[in-house]
Amino acid sequence: MIDKNNKSATILMFHVHKNYGSKKALIDINLDVSKNELLFITGPSGAGKSTLLKLLYLGEPVSEGQILIDGMNLSRISRKRIPLLRRKLGIIFQDYKLIPTKTVFDNVALVLEAMGKKRQFVQKKVNSMLRTVGMEKRFNAMPQSLSGGEQQRIAVARAVVGSPKIILADEPTGSLDSESACVIFDLLEGFHARGGTLLVATHDEKLIRKTGCKVIHLKEGRQISK
């Protein structure tokens, strides 16, 4: 069914359907994303963009069809190996999902600690990551004390710090002013420029026009060509 010899593809979706109860959120999605590609997923609110990304990181199970990520078949993956899949991915959530009881530093460090990295390595890597996103001075701050743009920078730092192959970004600039949005998008482009694969779900047409990359349009759960 799925062409497993397609070496250049890191993400393959094959006739994927997703239902929430009787509600059809995604209908017959087919997708292949190559290494180092930058792909936009766009469409109006409620079109299924977030759902598509959720299926990729197994935040939700697929109802029908198959997904392959970096050689892992998501419908066959055992519970124990889900963390391995997620370590290949850097995820930026629509609502940031920073841990409110941990400092900025600990939020970013968590990814590396969960991988079992050594303390010294974690220290160095997180500090350099915070410098990259321009938040090194706020390492000891709690997430609630930061602005939306700052929180999103931390979220980007957390997504990138584990050196993932793929980044999934859900409305990364959605709730930010245009200046903050620029900073965030530059950070993501930096990841792409260093050879990473990047999926961005957004309804921000401006963002897409700026880059002229491959785009997937969703409408009421269906892929539509433009």
Partner: peptide, 16 residues
């Protein structure tokens, strides 16, 4: 639970 869910999403194992 929210914190634990986030930990899982960023790749923490059950053991961790």
């Amino acid at each position: 639970r929210e914190e634990i869910e986030i930990m899982r999403l960023v790749g923490a194992t059950d053991r961790f």
